[in-house]
Design a protein around this nucleic acid. Structure first.
Length: 440
RNA sequence: CGGGGCGUGGCGCAGCCUGGUAGCGCGCGUGUUUUGGGUACACGAGGCCCCCGGUUCGAGUCCGGGCGCCCCGACCA
């Protein structure tokens, strides 16, 4: 794509579109990341697509790190598949049902348990091939009664969904815990604090369902948690993911401090948390992990041979991360009155190059020199606009860094480097600035 | 699905009550001006007023129907 702003499809808006009520939706529209094409359905423009890809890539790396294997299943699924599990009739009007030219019944997948279970069953025949964890990052469609909040609650959305198959409960628990670690690492790398909270397990019961919520004032549920959950660095945490004991210790550490959404809130337990550690607010759900045993292997009759030669139904779990929702949720958590403040890891561009005097030989030369060093990392604002316009747009788009090139400092071969998150500015040589920006 | 609101140049809105052939700000184009935080002036382009039907000499405006979008609620990655 073009990284020169003068030639980019990056339409920033000065005013808030009337339909956008919450801050992330407004900023996504104003910063030129998305455009709505129908209720709850969005087109991702070049900068927005970069964000989606950056998020996906981090999700992917952390899934791979716990030995999940990436596949790609289709968006369209056959109704027959869902009849096997009994969900075709059970799912209700949220499922978009489609007919092809031969009047065959299809549906746009809202989730993939049936399809993955079928795929698994076609392939895996022995306990020796377990465990298996498969995931994909694919568009889903749920015909929500009321889409809202931009991409946070769209009808079409990009989701990473993983599915695990284990020989027994103990093994399934280990897989679940491994995935929980992967999630904590994923969200940490995305620059947000997502707190895992016990979720309702419905008819299946047990304690193996957790939602991950990001604190944001516009969140959909109330959350209460112990500040002890805030400071842990999971990226360097040496958890031996092959050891069930180590996984259990890890799991206990994560789940012992109090954390609950308003639905699961336990007032008595909350009272026991020291006042200075109480954290209370609104939360956006960005991930959900769930153990559901043999629900689908049984209903779809997918079994494998055990060591004793007898057939058994593998134990399953599913693990979702709302990728497109995260784009909005991150903005909810990371912005100020001037615009987005992207975490370095998801920013569409590492830095904006602001040419304060396009057309000036010296300014142009300095900008081109910087831009040539790493064109993929920069958005070069070469438009013949006034300085104020460029400052405002750079703040709005939220580049982690702004490299400001104006005639004043360019004469001395220097540029001004601004850190978006802190507003801190410093005058540096071109090389010094490049080193800082490209290092992180 | 219940309740409410809106649909007028690209964006934000006024005009509708009290029918007479469309206006403001921003943006866009050209020129001048300005040159480190959305500069100022001038000129200019751009509108089946969501759609269909009705009333009327005449409908953006009144009436009926439809479609689309948003907000509150119940429900959800």
């Amino acid at each position: 794509m073009f990284m020169r702003l003068s030639r980019s499809f990056l339409p920033t808006l000065k005013e808030n579109p009337a339909e956008a009520q919450i801050v992330s939706h407004r900023l996504m529209l104003r910063a030129g990341l998305i455009r709505q094409t129908a209720s709850g359905i969005y087109a991702w423009l070049p900068a927005g697509l970069k964000v989606l890809r950056n998020i996906s890539q981090i999700v992917r790396e952390e899934q791979d790190r716990v030995d999940a294997q990436e596949v790609l299943m289709p968006t369209l699924q056959s109704a027959d598949l869902w009849r096997r599990s009994g969900r075709y009739d059970a799912y209700g009007p949220e499922m978009l049902r489609i007919q092809d030219r031969h009047k065959r019944e299809l549906l746009y997948g809202p989730t993939n348990e049936e399809m993955i279970t079928d795929l698994f069953g076609q392939t895996v025949k022995s306990y020796k091939d377990l465990p298996q964890v498969l995931y994909h990052i694919q568009w889903k469609f749920r015909d929500e009664m009321r889409p809202r909040f931009g991409v946070m609650r769209g009808r079409e959305f990009l989701m990473k969904d993983a599915y695990s198959f284990d020989v027994d409960y103990a093994s399934a628990v280990a897989t679940y815990r491994r995935m929980m670690l992967a999630y904590l690492r994923t969200f940490q790398r995305l620059g947000v604090r997502a707190v895992p909270m016990r979720a309702d397990t419905g008819p299946i019961g047990g304690e193996l369902s957790h939602e991950f919520l990001i604190l944001a004032p516009t969140g959909e549920s109330g959350v209460f948690y112990d500040a002890a959950l805030e400071d842990q660095d999971w990226l360097d945490e040496p958890v031996d993911t092959n050891s069930p004991e180590a996984l259990e210790a890890f799991f206990n550490r994560v789940t012992t401090p109090y954390a609950a959404t308003d639905e699961m809130h336990d007032t008595a337990a909350w009272e026991a948390v020291p006042d200075d550690r109480k954290r209370e607010g609104r939360g956006v759900e960005v991930g959900h992990i769930f153990y559901f045993g043999t629900k689908y292997t049984q209903s779809m009759d997918v079994s494998v041979s055990g060591a004793d030669g007898a057939q058994f139904f593998p134990e399953m779990g599913s693990y979702g991360i709302g990728v497109s929702r995260l784009a909005g949720a991150i903005i909810e958590a990371c912005h100020d009155e001037n615009g987005i403040i992207w975490p370095d890891s998801v920013a569409p561009f590492r830095a904006g190059i602001l040419n304060l005097k396009s057309g000036d030989t010296l300014c142009d030369a300095v900008c081109e020199q910087i831009y040539a060093k790493a064109p993929e990392a920069f958005l070069y604002d070469d438009r013949p606009e006034r300085a104020g316009v460029k400052f405002a747009d750079a703040d709005l788009m939220g580049h982690p860094w702004q490299i400001v090139v104006g005639p004043r400092s360019a004469k001395e071969g220097r540029v001004e480097l601004k850190r978006r998150a802190t507003g801190e500015r410093q005058e540096l040589s071109v090389d010094e600035a490049l080193t800082l920006v490209l290092a992180g």
